[in-house]
Computed example of a mutant assay.
Amino acid sequence: MREKHLLAKWTRRPPTIPKIDSVIQKERWYSNCPTAQAIMSKWSPPKKEEVESSVSLMKLVHTQKWKHLAVVEPSPWAGEGKGVVTTKRFPKNSILCDYHGELITGAEGRRRMANRSSDTDYSFFFKAGSKELCVDAHNVPCSCHPHMETFGRIINHSKWDTNIRPEICLMQFPEGSQHIIFFRAMKDLEVNEELLF
């Protein structure tokens, strides 16, 4: 149970030995306690079901305080505009951030796109069962985070150099379930590597 408790604290990416030791000290476990090395060896990327019920990921979706990412301009990959780079290593299958915006129907998303004069559109269309949905991240800043620009909408798209992939999850928030698009690392990501999906 203690191993499970410790492993549940790191759903986004693997822990470090000092962080595990710190949690063990805060819990004041002096006997029958797993070692930090044992926890490190048992960590695995979270399965979709674990992501959908993760309290720490729900908190990150609400606060948009994703760590170890930075916005750069110009984008190293595109040579212009903005991009998002890592400031720390992320192992394969780590969750980096979400594509944050207003969740609407696919039909409403297409209607909004047709009415916009901008060359770039920040609409992410996806299927959820038989429904077509859209996350519209066109408005900056969004109404729920008026003092920040969220990372997910700035990530550039590439047909050939992708290093992250979207994963659609149905998160079980206390106020009800909601579809969220997370970005997962497709490979180990190094420091200062631009995210591309």
Rank of each mutant, 00 (worst) to 15 (best):
Lys92Ile: 12
Lys92Glu: 14
Ser94Thr: 13
Ser94Trp: 08
Ser94Arg: 12
Ser94Lys: 12
Ile95Asn: 12
Leu96Ala: 11
Cys97Asn: 11
Cys97Val: 08
Asp98Lys: 07
Asp98Thr: 14
Tyr99Trp: 08
Tyr99Lys: 14
His100Tyr: 15
His100Lys: 03
His100Asn: 13
Glu102His: 08
Ile104Gly: 00
Thr105Gly: 10
Gly106Asp: 03
Ala107Arg: 10
Glu108Leu: 15
Arg110Ala: 09
Arg111His: 03
Met113Gly: 12
Met113Thr: 10
Ala114Arg: 11
Ala114Asn: 13
Asn115Tyr: 09
Asn115Ala: 15
Asn115Asp: 09
Arg116His: 04
Arg116Gln: 07
Arg116Phe: 02
Arg116Lys: 04
Ser117Pro: 01
Ser117Thr: 14
Asp119Glu: 09
Tyr122His: 07
Ser123Glu: 03
Ser123Pro: 00
Phe125Val: 06
Phe126Pro: 04
Lys127Asp: 09
Lys127Arg: 11
Ala128Arg: 08
Ala128Thr: 03
Ala128Asn: 03
Ala128Phe: 09
Gly129Ile: 08
Gly129Trp: 05
Ser130Arg: 13
Lys131Ile: 06
Lys131Gly: 01
Lys131Asp: 10
Lys131Trp: 08
Glu132Ala: 03
Cys134Gln: 02
Cys134His: 05
Val135Ile: 15
Val135Arg: 08
Asp136Trp: 07
Asp136Glu: 08
Ala137Thr: 04
His138Trp: 12
His138Thr: 13
Asn139Asp: 11
Asn139Val: 11
Asn139Tyr: 09
Val140Trp: 01
Cys142His: 14
Cys144Val: 13
Cys144Thr: 09
His145Met: 05
Pro146Ser: 13
Pro146Phe: 11
Pro146Tyr: 07
His147Trp: 01
Glu149Ser: 11
Thr150Ser: 03
Phe151Ala: 05
Phe151Thr: 06
Phe151Gln: 04
Phe151Cys: 05
Gly152Glu: 02
Gly152Ser: 09
Gly152Tyr: 10
Arg153Gly: 03
Arg153Asn: 05
Ile154Cys: 00
Ile154Gln: 02
Ile154Trp: 00
Ile154Gly: 00
Ile155Asn: 01
Ile155Lys: 02
Asn156Glu: 03
His157Trp: 09
Lys159Phe: 11
Trp160Thr: 14
Trp160Pro: 00
Asp161Thr: 01
Thr162Lys: 15
Asn163Arg: 03
Ile164Pro: 00
Ile164Gly: 01
Ile164Tyr: 01
Arg165Gly: 10
Arg165Met: 14
